[in-house]
Amino acid sequence: MPEVAQREVTFAQAIREALAEEMRRDATVCILGEDVAEAGTPFKVLSGLVEEFGKDRVLDTPISEAGFTGMAVGAAMTGLRPVVDIMFGDFITLTMDQMVNQAAKVHYMSGGRWKVPMVMRTTLGATRRSAAQHSQSLHAWFSHVPGLKVVLPSTPYDAKGLLKTAIRDENPVVFFEDKMMYKLKGPVPTEEYTIPLGVADIKREGNDITLVATSSMVQVALGASTLLEKAGISAEVIDPRTTWPLDEKTLIDSAKKTSRVIVIDEGYGRYGVTAEIASVIAEGAFYDLDAPVKRMGAMHVPIPFSPPLEDATVPTENSVFEAARALCNRN
């Protein structure tokens, strides 16, 4: 991170800046989705963009995710760089055919003659009291499909740099934002920068245990590492930033250094992102592991509306702290 980065902006503002800068830079970049123009999305992430770029480039669509995602695939194939807004990540289910069978396949099936330079921005994360159909973290679904890249920013800095790279990518990128993180502030430089996809970031260096965390769980892991420090355990926090491409080397190197790993991701653990990452680490660092690789994710239940129950379904600073302490044999 450049040292001049003293300015602090929110996660939402970082997203907005990335979009605005790319739209100024490239006239083919446009936004389409539900309530993206006048409303600026329910999370106010896009506020002000329609004023600057007009209704032709910030397009409010009907409530039809399959329809406007399909439009975006076609627009991308024919010269635009659309950024689709899917308000809640839960609604990606409606876009699956467009994304999985069309967007992900076109470049390959056309022998590279067609490209689909589109971005799907959507959300993940629970604890917003939004109940079972508006609280899921389904990024593992897209991570499973060849031809799709999946980005999970965890800080305003990463969000801006990664979104700009995603927009410039020649093929589809799905960009998941934690809806609880939009108000998180962090340093973002004023000058232009981008972050390559497939490069993990060491959010905190440590020696005793590695906490691999994605998206919403990065802040949880950082909080846990502060608690661990007080308990005499030095935790390293690694943020892969993209589930595909996946920076396996950084994960394995950290595991080799600390010999103990917990993988934390807000998606469901079963057949989830944590399973894939744990497997990569187990294969790559087996002879340096001193304990089984542990996984923490959303409980395998529909997210409850009841606030106390909802809070119990996702990993917290305390639960990560306890798990790390147990893994380090220090309880």
Binding site: Y287, D288, D290, N329
Partner: peptide, 24 residues
């Protein structure tokens, strides 16, 4: 024996049967 411990035992020529485990 953890995988790392097993590897270290080989490298450091430690007889595993002589070692008491401190794991939980």
């Amino acid at each position: 024996v953890s995988p790392k411990a097993r590897r270290l035992a080989k490298e450091l020529k430690v007889d595993l049967t002589e070692v008491r485990g401190s794991g939980a």
